[in-house]
Amino acid sequence: MLGYALRRVLSAIPIVFITIAVCFFILRLAPGGPFDGERALPPDVLRNLREYYNLDKPLPLQFVDYILGVLRGDFGPSMVMRDFSVARLISIGLPFTLMLGFAAFAIGTAAGLIAGALAAFYQNKWPDYLLVFVVLIPLVIPNFLMANLAQLVFGVYLRWLPVGGYQPGAILNLVMPVLILSMPHGARVARLTRGSMIEVLGTNYVRTARSKGLGTRLILARHAIKPALIPVVSYLGPGLSYLLTGSLVVEQVFALPGIGKYFITAALNRDYGLVLGTTILYVFIILALNLLVDIVYAWLDPKVRYR
């Protein structure tokens, strides 16, 4: 088990490296840049700028410098928000995005699991039909539209919740963003749980467990849940990526200070330093979480470890 975990960690390192390299070179080789303003800058100013942002050396050297910097936690300066380093901006935005993401992940996963299991247990009865219908709503209404509609209904018409923005401690400002972010995730988890639970409840080994007279509760808790979770857990990896990209939407619509907001602002302003830094961070977080999911998966399904 430990060896398996170690192997997985080692295999993730080149992926991070390749991603950094690809993003770095694409952005550096791209036509246009943050200094192509309305007015052309005087040559010596431009030269100073290029020197300051380490753009004057040959590209491979720039890359080596950048990698060394990243290893020290230095992502270079932001090219548009001139007084901030990328690392500083990330250190402001990351905790917020992680909090938002994990809150939505926890709520969505828990609600999805419970709802899906209930629907499977009451298959083809009214709780099942209700769930199948409710789950469709966040899946067919795109996240950004849902966020806008929620803003209108709860923020503008009903005035129950603030429309957007966030200061530390303003919990009410987080209610809508977290719920909106968790809904599509919860819906997919619920669908998957329902399907896999129905499948597991029909397997031969659950029939064996019933033939042993174990009782419904023990059969569900010991025999059905673990195998039923396997497809759900294998979804959680991609699910986390959807959540993180979903946080782009939610942070944008609700004007929240997370890295998603920084990423989009940076992209719109062609702030390549910040784009690169936030992208690397996203990729790193997603790979780390996927790794975690894989290890949980190996624990759930003993066969995986021996592959």
């Binding site: 952005l27 991609p238 990526s241 990209t245 990423f263 992209a267 992208t279 996203y282 997603i286």
Partner: peptide, 10 residues
């Protein structure tokens, strides 16, 4: 495994 929407945006 990678967040493809980021790459589209880039």
């Amino acid at each position: 495994a990678l967040p493809y929407i980021l790459f589209v945006i880039i």
